[in-house]
Structure formats: C-alpha cells, structure tokens
Design a protein around this nucleic acid. Sequence first.
RNA 1: CGGGAUGUGGCUCAGCCUGGUAGAGCACUGCGUUCGGGACGCAGGGGUCGGAGGUUCAAAUCCUCUCAUCCCGACCA
Length: 576
Amino acid sequence: MRFSRMHLPTLKEVPAEAEVASHRLMLRAGMIRRLAAGIYSYLPFGLLALRNVEEIVRQEMNRAGAQEVLLPAVQPAELWQESERWDFYGKELLRFKDRHQRDFCFGPTHEEVITDLIRHEVRSYRQLPLNLYQIQTKFRDEIRPRFGLMRGREFIMKDGYSFDVDDAAATISYQSMRAAYGRIFSRCGLDFRAVEADSGAIGGNFSHEFVVLADSGEDAIASCEKCDYAANIEKAQSKFVETAVPEVKSDSAAAETVATPDCQSVDEVAAFFKVSPAKIAKSMIFESDLGFCMVVVPGDREVNEFKVKAELKANWLEIPAPGRVADELGLPVGYLGPLGVDIPVLVDREVPQMGVMVCGANRAGYHLKGVCWERDFSSKEIADLVVVNAGELCPRCGAALQIDRGIEVGHIFKLGTKYSEKLNATFLDQDGKEKELVMGCYGIGVGRTVAAAIEQNHDENGIKFPYAIAPFKAALLNLDMKSEEVTAFCEKLYQEFLERGIAVLYDDRNERPGVKFKDADLLGMPVRLTLGRKGFKRGIIEVKLRDSSTSQEFPLDDLEPLWSLFSELQADDTRI
RNA sequence: CGGGAUGUGGCUCAGCCUGGUAGAGCACUGCGUUCGGGACGCAGGGGUCGGAGGUUCAAAUCCUCUCAUCCCGACCA
C-alpha cells in the first residue's frame, strides 16, 4: 500500500478521552475513531490488524475441527424468555421492538440462537460431536465502556459452541479448545496465562480465562510461583494456615460496649482502640435474591463478593445503599457487628483465629470490645470469603502466590446441559434413548486482543506490532521523493514486495524525513526500510527492526538477506 | 444506578471567577523557502461557545432545566 493513497490519519496530539496506551495509540495511529460511548469505527489500518487476528483464529479453530457459521445479530425475545435470560441478563441486553411491537435484542452472545439451530438439526449421536463458531459484532450495553476497544459496548467477538453426547466427550471438546486458544494467543505474539475463572452470567461449572499480562489490565490473577495453579482473583483461593488462637479464659470479661463516636471505618476504629485492623471484625451487609445477609471478615482483608455469591448459591449479589440497610434492617452502617442480628451471618475462616476482637454494636456510635469467637458468635459456620493477597500460599502446592494484572482476551466454559435443558435440545443416543446435548462455549474478544497486543508491545514512540498481527510487515521510507533514482529504486522494491506477497507500507508522501520516521515508529511495522540519497550513493538501504535500537545496512544490489529476514520472521510467527 | 468533573473550529485547550469585538497551538488550503527524526514565513477557509429556557441594555461568561462525554465503585470477550 502506498501511504500517499491510504486513509491513514495519524495524530500528533492525543484526544483527551484516551487513558491507556492501546487506546491512545489506536487513535493516534488512525486505527479507530469513536462514534459514541463504547462504539468505534475501524479505519483501514485498524481493520487490517483485526483481520489478521481473525485469520489466526479461523485457522486454529478450523484446525481444531470447528466450523464457521454466521448467526443473526438480532434475536427474538421468545428465545431469551425460553432460556429465562430475558429477565435475568439485565440492562446489558440491548432490547428494542420491531414495527409489530415484538421484542427483540441485539445479541450479546449466542447460546440461545445456536442451541435453537442445533435442536432443529441434530437428532442422532452420529451427528456429534459438533463445534460451530462465528466471528461477529456483539453488543453489550456496558454501564461504563472505557479504554477504547478494551471495553467497548459494540465489539467483535469470536464465539464458538460445542455439542457432545456426554460430559466426558464435552471435556475432550473443552480441552481441544483450550489447546487451540493457547495456539491462537501464542501466534498473536502475546504473553498470556490460562487461569481458572468464575463462569459468571453465562452459567456453567468450569471455565478458564485467557489473560494477557499487562499492568493496565482490569483483571487481577493469582498464580503460583512453583506449580501451574493460576486463577482469576475472583476465584483464587489460598491454603488455609491455622494459627494458635490465644485462649480466652471462661471467666474473662464479657464483651463490653464502648462509645466510639465518628469511628465508622476499620482504620478509625483500629486507631480508636489502638489495635491493628486485623483485630477488627469487619461486617458488611449484602443483598441477594435470597435476601439480606451479613459477611464478617478480618478488618485487614477484603470481601470477595464472588466467593460470597458462590457460598450463598445466589443468582446476584450487591451491596445495598446504607439508607436501605437502616430502613429495612434497622442497622447502622459503620457500626455493624455479627452479634444479635437476625439475618444469616457468613463468617470468614480466618475470623476464629482473630482471638479477642472488636466489632460494631449494631448501634450508631458504639462498638463492642473483647468479643471472641467461641463464646460470642452464635453460628459457627465458616467459609473462605476473602480476596487472596500476594504471598499467601498456593492451595495446590503451598508455594507463594503472586498477583498480576491482565486483560481477559478469551474465556472458555463447560456449559453442561444448562441451555439444552431449557431449550429442549436433545438427541437419540446409541441405545435409542433421548438425551440432552452437553455444551461448551468459547469466546475471544478480537478487538480486545488487538488492544492487548498493543498494550503489551509499545514504547513512548508508538506501537511495536507482533509480526503476525502487524497490518503491514514492513515500512518502506523513501526519504528523497525528488530524487528520480531513489524513487525508481523504491518503486522497484515496492513492486517486489507486492510480488512476494509481503504486506508493505510504502511511504511515498511528499513529507520531510522526520515526519516519515515518526509515523513509522507510531504505526509499529516490525521492519523499517529507509532509502535516501546518501544511502543510494553508497549502494545501501538501511534496515531497522521496530523492536531494536540498532539498524543494519543491506547492499542494494543483493537483497537476498532482506528476503531471508522476512522468511525467518514469517516462520517464527507460524511456529507454535 | 451512586460519587466527581467536563462540554468553546477536525484535535488539544485558553477565555468564564469580575457579563461588553470568540482566541492560541496543531490540523486544513495557496505561495515561497526548507528536506535523515513531527520545519519556517506570508496569505487564507472553518466556531448557532452541547441544547432549551431565564436574568440583563448586553450572556461563552450568571441562574434553572436538559443532553452528552469522561473519571472512581458493581458487569464482561
């Protein structure tokens, strides 16, 4: 492609909205433009990168035996009512009516549609296993879209669905997808981890997330330094270490009520009693579809809402407004405690080890001191309810856990029969018995993968595209457009790139050299070729890798080394 | 949905507090000079100051409402 003819509007200045590197660079490199909150147009340069990721996804999905389909983006409400997600999915589901006032939604995911398709098509175990995928625009009406393509409302996603005869077969499908995902992200040149994850609203009982490591990532993952345990922080557990609890003599003073004006936070209470926050029992009210409950954890720990939700077996969980807690429960937020409340109390497994502790008195302005587990807590049920910290011990091998940040680019789930049950998708097995299809579903955020790649591969000058997803593999800079011989050579070289099928961006613009260098760095082509009058006289062309600070010179009369370089880069990229 | 902030040429922002002629840089057009790391000069084009209402002789500026966007917490590829 000739730069002079390409719509590639690079920006010197950064639009104010861009917070993270990938968003900033994608705007500056003329890859995307914002139309509305979380909704972007893909410009030619951005679309090329996107298509490269899609192509890798297609190759690896096909290789794993999946077949590509394309399902409708607009879906009838009936299907979602049948799966009972019409009410359940919430406001993320973009709903609208057609001219006949029939309810529809714009698909945020396609379990319903694919299951509906399959239930009409698949009758026999002989037709299984089946694995279908599509690459399509989805819409999720996120409350807070941000970071450009990282969290858009409209986004391109590869979603795949597998159908098997039983759980064992479904596991095989799942493992095969897990392997394919590893190949996909490796080929995209990403440093990633496959971690155990919460399966969220999609449902199901077993899932892995593929997380690209990046400090700007929105997800945190815990991984073991020694073994291969890795989990999303939402799900991560640690080995419980029992410590000696200071014994409380039976004749020791009972819990005592103390006036603690203006001490609502754990820190304030700890300061008031001159004890460490670890000695404060932090009590919080949660509300779920099962009603209110209280969760008690040590004051220096953070409640893991996902664990609470799982422990309760609730469908949803949130922290109610303090006003509601006061109105409906008569409890003063800031002075909550587990003693004498008449709603279920969930206690973290570390609380019994706190010894003598302080907690709220359920009376505004008062706390209790001298509280102890054995004597004072009415329910003795405990569970793991806190967010793991770095340095805690691996639940598998006992080595230390580390916490990293990352970007979730893929997620695979074993769904089981959740949707086939609801939608009555069955087949006849070998014995002529009717059975429900066992499903799996597999997603990849295509745009997010591009964003993650940039997040992980950039410097202060711009993008450093991994070769496989680079929109152009090379930038050819003609620094002397007015020199006929230089231009003639560049033209010849450009043609040879075209013949060899290596995507090149030929900068033939009437611009000063500085502009061309800056744009080449910003756009991040892996290889930069520079030819100017001086070099031409010396019979050399300058070759520089974007990822390297040094350059080398190749003779103009023998460019074989150049083509070998591209062969090597190409090979690296398909090797897995 | 809560909490905070911002809306002024395509982009980044100043002007607002203290009402009185809409500004700068970048980008764009033309001409000239320049030409290996985002050049310079001259001349231009482009803005209902987010929208509506109000106060006032007079509103980008003050008031009310509204819309949009961004940032901090719950959703997810």
